[in-house]
Write a protein that binds this DNA or RNA. Structure first.
Ligand SMILES: [Mn+2]
Ligand SMILES: [Mn+2]
Ligand SMILES: [Zn+2]
Ligand SMILES: [Zn+2]
Lengths: 142, 142
DNA sequence: TGGTATTTGCAATGGACTTGCAATAAGAAG
DNA sequence: CTTCTTATTGCAAGTCCATTGCAAATACCA
């Protein structure tokens, strides 16, 4: 079912955690989902699939999966909520969101390597991370 | 006192709005402030200056100033609140924030012109805007 | 110096997310 | 398979940032 599952179970156990029905359900949903999903969306979709899970548990689950490095948390501009996506082998990338319909698409690029060095020189900061996001109109909404 | 004030008053009046004591106070504070400030910070600093203003009014004021295009709203990654800065003649730029002390510094550059075109070709989106932010350690916190 | 529409303060409300705690269930050991 | 310990869950309540309703205050035009 989940190729991921054995590895993930190991990760969980290595930190004194357990693989539970609800964690499997959340992981399974994240695997099916192509777009980053919010806690509420996870909650609603699982209920559609007749999986009983509390919203609090969804929050706690994504938090754990983030700690394990299995899930990435996105805070897109002006959405006022967090979204989550499976990391599973995907490389560093960014996103573009449609202002009308909310569709989010991956941008499989990062143009910031050189700029980061420049910024470190200019500011004397040590740069640790960056967030980059584009917004606009998707083909359907233009 | 405020060079801005006459122009701003015109802007306000042009949209049926009024220049009030509290709006002047918020504008004046934003002028003094070099770093982007949150609504709560505006509230607290004005109270330190013995300016009576309700937090709700701060929210409503920055909202109006944003509508007039006088103020820019920033939602920095994982801060969980919005910050505001005067637009007044400043050009498009980005920010870097120290993960330890929270200091925010302007980055007077934007490396995304070319990438934007590339993204429009690749995704068929019409790109309208972008957000870019760096995080790291400032010189003092390293 | 009014008259009226805008703005303000206060209190209540909304939405995302977190925390406390008792009940439940994972999974190791026997 | 049964038992035992401890992590996890659900429910309720709480936190934090921000918004909304409404009556009182005030900007500003005539
Ligand atoms: Mn993605
Ligand atoms: Mn700035
Ligand atoms: Zn990047
Ligand atoms: Zn830019």
């Amino acid at each position: 079912m989940l190729k991921l599952e054995p590895n993930i179970k190991k990760n969980l156990r290595a930190t004194g955690r357990r693989m539970t029905r609800t964690r499997q359900a959340v992981l399974s949903l994240l695997q099916k989902t192509r777009q980053p999903v919010s806690a509420t969306e996870i909650f609603e979709r699982l209920h559609q699939e007749k999986v009983a899970i509390d919203l609090v548990t969804v929050y706690r689950t994504v938090h754990v999966l983030k700690e394990l490095g299995l899930v990435l948390q996105l805070d897109l501009h002006q959405e006022g909520l967090s979204r989550y996506e499976l990391k599973e082998g995907r490389k560093h990338h960014h996103h573009i969101r449609c202002q009308i319909c909310g569709q989010i698409e991956d941008l499989l690029l990062c143009p910031l390597k050189k700029v980061t060095k420049l910024i470190e020189q200019q500011t004397q900061f040590i740069v640790d991370d960056h967030t980059l996001e584009f917004t606009g109109l998707c083909p359907q909404c233009q």
